[in-house]
Design a protein around this nucleic acid. Sequence first.
DNA 1: CTGTATCCACGTTGATACTG
DNA 2: CAGTATCAACGTGGATACAG
Lengths: 117, 117
Amino acid sequence: MAAGARRGPYVCGIDAAMDVVSGKWKSLILWELNNYGARRFGELRRGLPGVSEKMLIQHLREMEEDGLVHREVYREVPPRVEYSLTEDGTSLNEALGPLGAWGTARRERLTIEQSGV
Amino acid sequence: MAAGARRGPYVCGIDAAMDVVSGKWKSLILWELNNYGARRFGELRRGLPGVSEKMLIQHLREMEEDGLVHREVYREVPPRVEYSLTEDGTSLNEALGPLGAWGTARRERLTIEQSGV
DNA sequence: CTGTATCCACGTTGATACTG
DNA sequence: CAGTATCAACGTGGATACAG
């Protein structure tokens, strides 16, 4: 998303939010950035095992367009770029809290069912 | 999702939750079912303008497999089927609350920016 | 180091028609 | 009414190679 004409008229707030977090790694990026503050491209890549450079930069760009992430470029040699959360990104991360808790509780429940029953 | 071998090992709770809500209409189905209680297939379809029968039944089946939705069949003529939220579905809907609020606030902010600035 | 550019596989979504 | 079946179109995600 984010590249301009993708967003439809939303039926409710969930739509608008989901539109912005949908993407395989976005919630993880939010999490990383929230825990570590500013992170460099390479650091993020190592922090998200399995992500490809293409997907990472793609998600990062979209999140930047969506005003979730701030991109700071340091013109040095070698080049350095740091990503950090904006206020919106931070508040989104907070709004994601209950969902994460629900998911964790669900995971535990499923694990118990599998082993116990 | 839900059809068996789709779910990977999750990095955090968000993953597990996102896996279950991802799908163009799922959050809306949750919303509909939460507001109206039990709903019939046709009612849901009319409540979700634009959804195709295939997508609706597909999402419903997945949500049933995920234990979010309960499907009650009444053997009548003509056939009647009612869908309702399970406890898990209800709690998921609650966990989605903050996210919806965030999305709504964001929408308002964007609207103001577009008209005002 | 931080990206870009291609090409490709796959899943999801959608339109349409048909069945019990 | 409540689905099922089929086919097509599209977007997302992934691998690899290359560039500033």
